[in-house]
């Protein structure tokens, strides 16, 4: 098995008496795409916020390549911040409206340091073309782009500093269905090309099945189930996982009718 990049152990986060995360543990292994699923309020986003340091866990451990972040040196923490980049849910608010695309894409490299002006430009242009944007877009502002284009800009921004891990917080849920697949394909292609490790947070199980190799199911801040996509989707152990899977619509209308009928029968049996 490949190296464990990020280890989350016993992560607990309380807001007053409310427990957002309760003893959440999982491993993110090099090169995999791990799905973190659950309904809204299940604590998915809190996991991400703890991982990037926007929230402080009440207790529990987050380790990167075996180094506990709480005990890491400044240099180790800098390395972590460079290696782990994030894609936000809403591409309309995650790009500074007063910066040009050029400035937005340059910022991570300026912060990390060690890139010459020429290297910066080369990397930006390379990624820009790879993700289907044009050089003339560099002088424009975020408002001139569609949601899908903005999310691609956000992906380029994350990739400029050659990260090892991408944390994606529902990166397509704010987008039109028509461009969701496009962005997902780009993420998958980039993952394969660059050997990225991705933690993919979503509530849409169909999206997770398409992209991920393993899944962690979160419900009310507790890990209900974890396993490979085939295991969890094929033979869900937890009742909550079955409920989630039941709610996924089928593309074939006939199958969809059968699914709804079966689901209603099951729900009636419970009551």
């Amino acid at each position: 098995m490949s190296e464990v990049l990020i280890e989350v152990a016993g992560l607990t986060k309380r807001f007053g008496i409310l427990s957002a995360l309760d003893n959440v543990s999982f491993e993110l292994r090099a090169g995999e795409v791990l799905g973190l699923v659950g309904e809204s309020g299940s604590g998915k986003s809190t996991v991400i916020r703890c991982l990037v340091g926007l929230a402080q866990q009440t207790s529990g451990r987050i380790a990167y390549r075996g180094i506990d972040l709480a005990a890491a040196t400044a240099a180790e923490r800098r390395q972590y911040r460079r290696d782990v980049q994030m894609i936000f849910q809403d591409p309309y608010s995650s790009l500074d409206p007063r910066m040009t695309v050029q400035q937005i894409l340059e910022e991570p490299m300026l912060v990390v340091g060690g890139f010459s002006a020429r290297q910066r430009q080369e990397r930006i242009l390379h990624l820009l073309h790879r993700l289907g944007l044009k050089e003339e877009h560099l002088s424009r502002y975020p408002k001139h782009f569609s949601g899908g284009q903005r999310q691609r800009i956000a992906i380029i921004r994350a990739l400029t500093v050659e990260p090892k891990v991408l944390l994606c917080d529902e990166p397509v849920s704010a987008l039109d269905v028509s461009v969701q697949a496009q962005v997902l394909n780009l993420l998958r292609d980039m993952q394969k090309e660059l050997g990225l490790t991705i933690l993919f947070v979503a509530h849409d199980l169909a999206v997770v099945k398409y992209l991920c190799s393993r899944v962690v199911v979160l419900h009310h801040g507790i890990v209900e189930e974890a396993g490979t996509v085939d295991e969890v989707y094929g033979a869900p152990k937890a009742a909550y996982t079955r409920e989630l899977l039941d709610a996924v619509a089928e593309p074939d209308p006939q199958a969809e009718r059968a699914r709804r009928a079966a689901r209603l029968k099951r729900l009636a049996a419970i009551r």
Binding site: V52, R78, R81, Q85, F88, S94, L95, V111
Partner: peptide, 19 residues
């Protein structure tokens, strides 16, 4: 969100404010 995004990148507090 864009300020949080910059914060995650490790942008200094002064730059966060001015930029």
């Amino acid at each position: 969100a864009y300020v949080e995004a910059a914060k995650i990148m490790g942008v200094s507090r002064l730059r966060l404010m001015l930029r």
